[in-house]
């Protein structure tokens, strides 16, 4: 998977966390907001991980 695809996946996870958190927190469904915050943080971990793991992080 190239760097752009990894970043795109990271951004998609961050974006999709929004409805999960809003719905889960408003409706009191812990599983929903829990999944939402997990998606956000997994997405947030990708850029530092790419920095250290990718052969060429600049090759977008």
């Amino acid at each position: 998977m190239d760097v752009l695809r990894r970043y795109t996946l990271a951004f998609a996870l961050m974006a999709l966390s929004l409805p999960a958190v809003s719905y889960g927190a408003s409706a009191g469904i812990a599983a929903a907001w829990g999944v939402g915050i997990a998606m956000l943080f997994v997405g947030g971990l990708v850029p530092p991980a790419v920095r250290f793991a990718a052969a060429d992080p600049d090759a977008i």
Binding site: M14, A15, S17, L18, V21, S22, G24, A25, A30, W33, G34, G36, I37, L40
Partner: peptide, 14 residues
């Protein structure tokens, strides 16, 4: 709390 953290984070994404 973790739930409050999720709300604050969700607002940040918005």
């Amino acid at each position: 709390s973790p739930e409050a953290l999720s709300v604050a984070s969700g607002k940040g994404v918005w």
